[in-house]
Nucleic acid binder design. Structure first.
Length: 222
DNA sequence: ACCTGATCATTA
DNA sequence: TAATGATCAGGT
């Protein structure tokens, strides 16, 4: 594990320094083996990037670089540079949400500043040969934040009103709510109708690929 | 080809 | 169980 970067500039420079390298090269330097595929190692690339950038790597509900106020996200991209997957942000609170405001929400904290690192993600490319792209340090524009806030408020209102069972991935223009668990049998508390506690599948907020694509496009092609 | 619900590993 | 890191894969 590399030392923690002391400034935003140092973090960005370090991210730029690994751009263009393959996952084999980065794994070799980190002293880790490359899995055959990501099927049973879904977070492997993210962990590898954390190592190279000196992220704290704890399972805490905080940004990766809390002192700098920056969250690290790897994002798999196709040959044409488009995101191949949605981006998970964080678990959604399903209880104790009355009076919770966007400004104090966990999801807004994570989305306030993100260091995006594109990585070739096409399954036709062997993991070892996939290249890391140029980093992008992003904060939402006024328009983007309004869009995120609107989605968040719609989803959180449904959660607060006991409508969790009616929420599907189709809600939200930029931010959607989807299951996030080891399997579909995992249960957690949530509000049911008339405020009674019920058990339901844990959910997380995800950024749609259309939204992250816009972020990447506006940065690399303007 | 894309989307949505399901899933995988690991730590505290 | 909840949190981190995400991608899988079948149905449309």
């Amino acid at each position: 594990m590399k030392p923690r970067p002391k400034s935003e500039k140092e973090l960005l420079e370090r991210a730029q320094a690994i751009a263009g390298f393959s996952l084999l090269e980065l794994a070799t330097e980190a002293g880790v083996r490359i899995p055959k595929n990501l099927l049973k190692n879904k977070g492997w690339i993210g962990k590898l990037l954390e190592w190279h950038l000196g992220a704290i790597s704890k399972n805490k509900a905080q940004q990766d670089f809390e002192q700098l106020g920056i969250e690290l996200k790897s994002i798999p991209i196709s040959y044409s540079g488009k995101p191949l997957e949605t981006t998970s942000i964080c678990l959604a609170p399903l209880v104790g949400v009355h009076g919770l405001k966007w400004e104090q929400s966990h999801v807004r904290n994570k989305l306030s500043r993100i260091l995006w690192i594109p990585v070739e993600g096409d399954k036709k490319i062997p993991l070892a040969k996939r290249l890391v792209g140029s980093p992008l340090l992003w904060s939402p524009s006024k328009e983007e934040e309004l869009k995120l806030k609107t989605d968040w408020e719609e989803l959180m209102e449904m959660i607060a009103l006991g409508q969790i069972k009616h929420i599907t991935a189709q809600y939200g223009e930029a931010l959607q709510l989807r299951p996030k668990a080891t399997n579909s049998r995992v249960l957690t508390n949530a509000y049911g109708t008339s405020g009674k506690l019920i058990k339901t599948l844990p959910r997380a907020f995800y950024l749609r690929t259309q939204f992250t694509d816009n972020i990447l496009q506006s940065h690399f092609f303007t």
